[in-house]
Amino acid sequence: MASLYLLIPIAIIFVCLAVALFIWAVKTDQFDDLDRQGHSILFDDSDEAKPASVEHKDKKL
């Protein structure tokens, strides 16, 4: 029972920290562009960076 007197305030502090971090993330626009990271996994940007001569060699193979 004595441990509850220690664990409950620690849990309250952790909840307050989590809420404060969430509010900070919202205020600093961390959640504005959620789709960009998902699209970066699906689409390869290196195809756009290839020179034209390399693209022609790939098509012949």
Results as ranks from 00 to 15, higher is better:
residue 31 F to S: 03
residue 14 F to C: 00
residue 9 P to L: 05
residue 52 A to S: 06
residue 19 V to T: 08
residue 59 K to V: 08
residue 37 Q to P: 06
residue 15 V to A: 10
residue 19 V to E: 12
residue 59 K to L: 11
residue 11 A to N: 04
residue 56 H to A: 14
residue 33 D to W: 05
residue 43 F to K: 01
residue 8 I to Y: 09
residue 16 C to G: 10
residue 15 V to R: 01
residue 7 L to C: 02
residue 5 Y to H: 08
residue 60 K to H: 02
residue 56 H to G: 09
residue 60 K to P: 04
residue 18 A to G: 06
residue 7 L to M: 03
residue 20 A to F: 15
residue 26 V to D: 07
residue 34 L to T: 06
residue 61 L to V: 02
residue 34 L to N: 05
residue 33 D to F: 12
residue 53 S to G: 12
residue 52 A to E: 14
residue 14 F to M: 00
residue 9 P to S: 04
residue 36 R to N: 11
residue 54 V to E: 15
residue 6 L to I: 10
residue 56 H to F: 08
residue 35 D to T: 07
residue 44 D to E: 13
residue 19 V to N: 09
residue 30 Q to E: 09
residue 38 G to R: 07
residue 48 E to Y: 11
residue 28 T to D: 12
residue 7 L to A: 03
residue 42 L to T: 02
residue 22 F to P: 00
residue 47 D to H: 02
residue 12 I to R: 10
residue 2 A to W: 10
residue 50 K to C: 09
residue 31 F to G: 01
residue 31 F to A: 01
residue 6 L to N: 11
residue 59 K to Q: 11
residue 23 I to D: 08
residue 14 F to G: 01
residue 25 A to E: 09
residue 40 S to Q: 15
residue 20 A to C: 10
residue 26 V to E: 12
residue 43 F to M: 05
residue 52 A to W: 11
residue 27 K to P: 00
residue 55 E to P: 01
residue 11 A to I: 02
residue 3 S to L: 08
residue 36 R to Q: 13
residue 8 I to C: 05
residue 49 A to W: 12
residue 7 L to G: 04
residue 52 A to Y: 09
residue 29 D to V: 01
residue 19 V to I: 15
residue 1 M to A: 09
residue 5 Y to K: 10
residue 19 V to G: 08
residue 4 L to A: 00
residue 57 K to Q: 13
residue 44 D to N: 14
residue 15 V to W: 12
residue 39 H to F: 15
residue 49 A to N: 14
residue 13 I to F: 10
residue 57 K to G: 11
residue 40 S to E: 14
residue 42 L to Y: 08
residue 11 A to D: 11
residue 40 S to R: 13
